[in-house]
């Protein structure tokens, strides 16, 4: 059984999985749109939570939340199943494929056969879509791969039951029904409002733009508090979380900027275009941060110090704050025009 399915590539696997599933059911939304509606921008630095013994810096919302928010905002009915028994999980998947339902799954990448080896860590929130089964092999549409991939029964079973942090436990999801007409404008405003809330309104030093400032304070102290090796490891961890796990920091700013640009046309608000280009500028600054941090780790020159990158973070934090505040003004006005 092979479902007639169009493979879609995306920058981020979670957006990509939703995008291509919706596309299959005739709803053409861009990755950026899904990212914005699901409020994919996020920041938190939680020094008291450790990942591999290093403080956790997160550039993305909890895996699965973009998915949940987008489907809720668009009114799409999705069924999500979790399993205890791997064999039953695979049977349920087979039944779905027989019925011709493309089925999304959350998997770990560590044992994922076709994945590039240098990226195979114990990361358990990757999203793939099964679109058929042919001579014992599953046909997989993985949003970050360029074309369809194949997985054996044993391998798929193993990655669906990956262990460790956020073990997926065979989680699979599929669309049951979609509403006849979707009010995209309301969904956009909802998404922007949530982004504003998470980035500037929520109190406390750890989350949102305040969190970026807090991180800057910490980074500035690294060379005094730690040996060069440990300081570099900590800095490396930040860049890794920023750029590797689902294209975090800069990549997400560009995605958000693309979302604002699309929204500008849909909401007929040219102000959003301006904010979009400001966001692009902020994305470029995040890229600068990664480049400079990389140079420090490689010890290639004396130009960049922990002080200069800490200053850069403060600048980013202030610029982002301005953008979110202006967004807040726009959605406050726009929401009154909605029925």
């Amino acid at each position: 059984m092979k479902i007639d399915y169009e493979h879609k590539m995306a920058a981020h696997c979670e957006n990509g999985a939703i995008m291509s599933l919706l596309n299959h059911y005739g709803i053409k939304l861009s990755e950026a749109m899904i990212f914005g509606i699901g409020s994919g921008i996020y920041f938190s630095h939680l020094p008291f939570i450790k990942l591999n013994g290093l403080p956790l810096t997160s550039f993305r919302p909890w895996p699965g939340s973009i998915f949940k928010r987008t489907s809720r905002a668009l009114g799409i009915d999705i069924e999500v199943n979790k399993f205890r028994d791997p064999v039953k999980a695979m049977e349920a998947l087979d039944r779905n494929i027989e019925k011709g339902i493309p089925t999304g799954m959350v998997v770990g990448v560590f044992y994922l056969d076709y994945f590039p080896a240098p990226y195979r860590f114990h990361f358990n929130a990757h999203n793939i879509i099964a679109t058929g089964k042919e001579s014992g092999y599953y046909i997989i549409s993985d949003p970050i791969m360029e074309s369809f991939e194949r997985l054996s029964y044993d391998n798929l079973k193993k990655v669906r039951f990956a262990q460790g942090l956020q073990a997926p436990r065979g989680k699979m999801y599929f669309i049951r029904s979609i509403p006849r007409d979707i009010d995209i404008k309301v969904a956009i405003i909802k998404g922007i409002k949530r982004t504003v809330r998470e980035m500037v309104v929520l109190p406390g030093p750890y989350i949102g733009v305040q969190g970026i400032k807090y991180l800057s304070k910490k980074v500035r102290k690294y060379p005094k508090r730690f040996s060069p090796g440990v300081a570099m490891k900590r800095l490396g961890q930040i860049v890794r979380m920023q750029e590797e796990i689902g294209t975090g920091g800069a990549g997400f700013r560009f995605l958000f900027a693309a979302f604002l640009q699309e929204s500008a046309a849909l909401l007929e608000n040219p102000k959003l275009n301006e904010l979009s280009s400001q966001m692009t500028g902020i994305g470029d600054m995040w890229r600068d941060f990664a480049v400079q941090a990389g140079r420090i780790i490689k010890e290639r020159n004396e130009m960049e110090t922990y002080d200069t990158i800490a200053d850069l973070l403060i600048e980013i934090s202030e610029k982002e704050k301005k953008v979110y505040q202006e967004l807040a003004d726009i959605v406050r006005n726009a929401s009154t025009h909605q029925p």
Binding site: P118, Y119, F121, M232, K233, G236, V239, R240, E243, E244, A290, V291, A293, G294, I297, K298
Partner: peptide, 9 residues
């Protein structure tokens, strides 16, 4: 930068 931090890991 991405390559550098991957290599570091």
């Amino acid at each position: 930068p991405k390559n550098i931090v991957l290599q570091q890991t």
